[in-house]
Nucleic acid binder design. Structure first.
Length: 645
RNA sequence: GCCGUUGUAGCUCAGUGGUAGAGCACUUCCUUGGUAAGGAAGAGGUCGUGAGUUCAAUUCUCAUCAACGGCUCCA
């Protein structure tokens, strides 16, 4: 007998070799019908595998992430079975579960898949799923596995086998399909009720662009149709929040073929948001002791040779222009210009920390396939600043920058984020990274200790640092689940020396300052793209391009509306009158769709009483007040940058 | 950059080997209407660009440009 400890702490006894499924059945038939896999002592295994020793056991169902993963991984096998049935001779690479769904990479030879093929495959999968084929696990000797795949002429699975040891190789079969797989899998294909193949894409073998490109099929499955329908509905909803769609609808930005890819044009409404963000940044930075500067968009080659950007960064810069026998580059970063400002006048330790801020315009040559709406562009406006400080000041400065991040996150209601401490890769010293092994370790430790002291949650990633030092990237998620790096906070121990920057220390000796690069609000492009999705276009009052729209019942009340408009403008409120010859219902509908926070409906009653009927976007009627009262109220809301929307 | 998909009016989209249509938006007129679409008329496109096949191309072929999805989450 073996002792099985269940998640609630209860301990039950079973005969040795009982499977999770046996145990589930002993608890309840209903539970047994839902079990997809089992977690035994922390490892996920097939529910059908015998348990041989005392163990803790968790039965995994659709409600568990591991259960879903297993379900989707098995679905990938089902898809592969369908593909093999319809296109014999196909070779498979890997087919993992994703956060949502699964994919399988395959080599289809010369064959190209079409959208119709997806539908055919879905039908085939439905058909195969209904056969309730069991997933059968088989341990197999390496030699035997190699022979099997040599016979199949399958170089991909043979490649996988190379890295596997004898004794740890397993095959899984369901129906007529057998695959090299470590599992685990769900009991049988019948669990898979609702199937949607979502898209066909190319994917390099092993993710390396030098390798052959395989066909990747994406799909998602559910244990019932209802969940699939909900999922598809959610995708529809997400599309509505897409910043590219909202950006167009709300007149925030546009792209034009003649201007060029990745070069957004900011429309008047978008420009208002930019200006509000800059106002916020300027206030915040001024309070934190930053000085503002302005620098040119181009610079000579020599400066980027000094900075070291050219050897490391040239691929991301627009090619040089020649002028008077000199090469000039569009700037891809602001730091060298700022270093030159630091260097313009001699500095003493008394001048430090010296903080320079600029909303700098940068141009980066992103690969064409990487461009994405506002999130990845070639012209960007960075909330940039550089802090020049002593080693002793570094921790405080670094902490202050982190505090600034948190302050911003609060204003914008960003509560899901993670800080990523990006370190160098020792193997790439001298190539991707400046060859200063000792300095790397020292600064990395410095940054890490600040993070730990400040109790900021973070993860460490090797090989993601900037070429001049470690950095902290802030990852955030937009409301529709898009993850990206918003902000960055980098340490730079290299450029100070390269630019021969120095201050006179207390001992009257020249000393190279440490530099912190920081951009809490990232770039206007990415940040506004994020905000569009974050707020679903419903900007808080302080950011809303139009804050108040006056809606006269008919044009008899236009003169009254105009006097209201003048007063609102005097109070620095962005307002407009809807003077179209339309009924009030239409005016309200259009204003609602434009997501204007406040509407003032004015007709006979309001005009006689000298009042306004207030309507809040998305919330409806908000009562009748005098204009003075209304202005007083929303002025507070604007001034406080209230996120209450 | 690579693979795949797409490209028709300002927007969303239909359509055809015989040089194009709808809804919304726009303009004008009627209507002056109290909290999410009042009515009518009109204007607007060399069908992304270039070449080829054809008597004839927006439609077929090729190239090119752009947008979108993917190329990271390793049997």
């Amino acid at each position: 007998m073996i002792k099985i400890t269940l998640p609630d702490g209860s301990v039950r006894e079973y005969t040795q070799g009982s499977s999770a499924m046996d145990i589930a059945k002993s608890i309840s038939e209903g539970l047994a019908r839902k079990v997809l896999a089992a977690e035994v002592n922390g490892a996920v295994i097939d529910a059908s595998r015998g348990i041989t020793a005392d163990s803790s056991l968790k039965l995994l169902t659709w409600d568990d992430n591991s259960g879903k993963n297993t379900f989707w991984h098995s679905s990938a096998h089902l898809m592969a079975e369908a593909v093999e049935a319809l296109f014999p001779g196909v070779k498979f690479w890997v087919g993992p579960a994703l956060e949502k769904g699964f994919y399988y990479d395959m080599d289809l030879g010369d064959r190209k898949l079409t959208e119709e093929d997806l539908t055919t495959l879905e039908k085939k999968m439905q058909e195969l799923a209904k056969q309730n084929s069991q997933f059968v696990r088989k341990e197999i000797a390496k030699n035997e596995a190699i022979t099997y795949f040599i016979d199949k002429n399958d170089e991909y699975k043979l490649d996988l086998l190379q890295n596997l040891k004898d004794g740890e190789i397993t095959f899984y079969s369901q129906g007529g399909f057998t695959d090299l797989c470590r599992g685990p899998h769900i009991p049988h294909t019948g669990f898979i009720k609702a199937i949607k193949l979502t898209n066909i894409a190319g994917a390099y073998w092993k993710g390396d662009e030098k390798n052959k490109q395989l066909t990747r099929l994406y799909g998602i499955t559910f244990p019932n149709q209802k969940e699939l329908d909900e999922y598809l509905l959610m995708l529809e909803e997400a599309k509505k929040r897409d910043h590219r769609k909202l950006g167009k609808e709300l007149g925030i930005f546009t792209m034009d073929d003649d201007v060029g890819p990745g070069l957004p044009l900011w429309l008047p409404n978008g420009t208002i948001i930019i200006e509000e963000l800059e106002k916020l940044a300027k206030e915040t930075e001024s309070d934190a002791g930053y000085k503002r500067v302005v620098t040119p968009h181009i610079a000579k080659e020599s400066m980027y040779l000094t900075s070291g950007h050219l050897p490391y960064y040239a691929d991301s810069m627009f090619p040089a222009m020649e002028m008077d026998g000199e090469k000039y580059y569009l700037k891809a970063m602001n730091c060298p210009h700022h270093h030159k400002i630091f260097d313009a006048e001699p500095k003493s330790y008394k001048d430090l920390p010296y903080r320079l801020a600029e909303y700098g315009t940068c141009y980066r040559y992103e690969q064409s396939g990487e461009l994405f709406g506002l999130m990845r562009v070639r012209c960007l406006h960075m909330n940039d600043a550089h802090i020049y400080c002593t080693k002793e000041q570094f921790a405080d400065e670094f902490r202050a920058v982190n505090d600034m991040y948190l302050k911003y996150f609060k204003i914008f209601g960003i509560d899901k984020y993670i800080m990523r401490l990006s370190l160098h890769d020792p193997e790439k010293l001298g190539q991707k990274y400046i060859n200063e092994p000792a300095l790397w370790l020292e600064t990395e430790e410095l940054v890490r200790s600040v993070l730990i002291e400040s109790n900021i949650p973070y993860v460490e990633v090797k090989g993601e640092g900037a070429f001049y030092g470690p950095k902290i990237d802030v990852q955030i998620w937009s409301a529709i689940g898009r993850e990206f790096t918003l902000a960055t906070n980098q340490v730079d121990f290299a450029q100070g020396r390269r630019f021969k920057l120095a201050f006179t220390n207390k001992e009257n000796q020249p000393e190279v300052p440490l530099i912190i690069h920081r951009a809490p609000l990232g770039t206007h492009e990415r940040f506004i793209g994020f905000l569009l999705e974050h707020y679903a276009g419903k900007f808080p009052l302080w950011l809303a391009p139009t804050q108040v729209k006056i809606l006269p019942i008919s044009d008899k009340y236009l003169p009254y509306a105009q006097t209201l408009l003048q007063q609102l403008k005097k109070a620095d409120i962005r307002a407009a009158v809807d003077d179209r010859n339309e009924k009030i219902g239409k005016k309200i509908r259009d204003t609602e769709l434009m997501k204007v926070p406040y509407m003032l409906v004015v007709g006979e009653k309001e005009m006689t009483e000298e009042k306004v009927a207030i309507r809040r976007q998305g919330k409806g009627d908000a009562g009748v007040k005098s204009l003075e009262e209304f202005i007083a109220e929303i002025s507070v809301e604007i001034k406080e940058r209230s996120a209450d929307i």
